[in-house]
Design a protein around this nucleic acid. Structure first.
Lengths: 245, 245
DNA sequence: CAAAACTCTGCGGGTTCCCGCAAGCCTAAT
DNA sequence: ATTAGGCTTGCGGGAACCCGCAGAGTTTTG
């Protein structure tokens, strides 16, 4: 394991960041013999397959196919692949997306692009050599808040939040999720209260100024609970579901 | 004008991109004596004020204060400032935001981060030396589509699109925009048709699956007509308006 | 086992939304 | 001047939404 040749696959669309990563990997991992580079998720999947890569550094938020999608298919084929996610943001949508797809017992990491070289190098060694997880502090904080009961969303609530974000009717949601109409509306109540949107007054005389359903979506976006990538993915799933009926 | 000393201000939050810009500016503009750097919009405004910068390269999408906001206050103080916007994306929301704030006759540019070094250098010289506008082809294409009648939104429609995105009630919108309730709803009809959202069937048996108002917001997001920055800005304005009544 | 706690569901009503119909105002074209 | 087309507003109704109340079913807890 120590003397074995190691190769690393970098998946990152920004050429500047890609070459920076290349440098950092070379410096942090002298035992690494070869470095492959891909500039989007699709290329990443392809290269991972042909080179049987077990060590990957991956950006989230790429054009052709985002990092979460790519990681999911890669992990489906090889659950022991070690992936270090290297992202600009710690949006809850990303954190939730990642921790939703990581296989049991797999080693992975999540560090922000703004971290120091030192911490990046340390993360590279920890994951690829020591096979242990490394999560940036800020991301970890997000996880805590996310899965705690305080303002934390259950998976089913999150699902329905996505549905109203897509613009689905209560009726359509109840069809899709196999719930009664009233149950969907109950979930919506919980969502509204957790997002702290109310139509009555929180400030004086702010009468019925909000359409709760639309308001919930935007505060979710503003709180980084939803983001463009999550929306895009959900829309694709919705279209798929619409076809099958 | 030719022999005059020129200094350039770079406003960009990503250190890698910042130093790349630094190199490119130095290479493209030998007549440039000093280069200042700021890592967000606030710093950018401050530096522009103290150094009386007339030549600025600015990223959109920064943490503390985004490029459009910063550019607006800078241009308000010195309308003859020349600004080159250097962005990752050509979202309609950005393009619209920029062209909304550029003063009459000011020279500005909009190039994507993915353009070649050559074109970046050319843009720098065109704007800062020749004082003429340079808009990337892809961005230009966006402008065409945006302001043409085809799927093009008038300013008032765009305004109301933002309002429903924020989750406002028809009634609240009519208050805010000084329109009758019915007029707001008419605008909404136009918006729905331009975004091509309908509740009837476009594919067979897709009965009333969509809540038009919420659906419109997401397709606008998916089409890059809206994005996070625009939402954030609109939310701030909304809060301000809410206070004043 | 029984009690408490939580979830799913139906009913009902008040409100908001979606939108067709139609009448007044304005600008532009014939 | 007359006509056509656009924009604004009112009215009215069917549908969807928001939500309190209350009864079943399931899980948790003592």
């Amino acid at each position: 394991m120590k003397g074995a040749a190691m190769d690393v696959l970098i998946v990152e669309d920004d050429p500047l960041h890609r070459s920076y990563l290349h440098e950092q990997v070379k410096a942090a991992l002298p035992e690494c013999s070869t470095i492959y580079e891909a500039e989007n998720g699709q290329q990443g999947e392809a290269l991972a397959r042909t080179h049987r890569s077990a060590h990957i550094v991956m950006d989230l938020q790429m054009n052709a196919r985002n990092g979460i999608e790519a990681a999911r298919t890669i992990w489906r084929e090889r659950p022991d692949t070690r992936i270090l996610f290297w992202s600009n943001y710690a949006d809850e949508a990303y954190v939730r997306g990642v921790s939703r797809i990581v296989p049991n017992g797999a080693a992975y990491g999540y560090v922000l692009k703004s971290t120091s070289e030192e911490r990046l190098k340390l993360a590279l060694r920890s994951i690829f050599i020591e096979n242990q997880c490394v999560i940036d502090n800020e991301v970890r904080g997000m996880q805590q808040r996310s899965f705690a009961q305080t303002s934390g969303f259950s998976d089913s609530e999150y699902e329905i939040l996505m549905d109203i974000a897509l613009g689905m009717t209560d009726r359509a949601i109840s069809d899709r999720r196999h719930l009664s109409l009233r149950s969907v509306q109950n979930r919506l109540q919980q969502i509204y209260s957790k997002l702290d949107v109310h139509q009555a007054a929180d400030s004086p005389r702010e009468e019925g100024a909000f359409n709760l359903r639309a308001r919930a979506v935007t505060v979710a976006m503003l709180r980084k609970l939803l983001n463009y990538g999550a929306l895009e993915k959900a829309e694709a799933e919705l279209q798929h579901w619409l076809r099958g009926r």
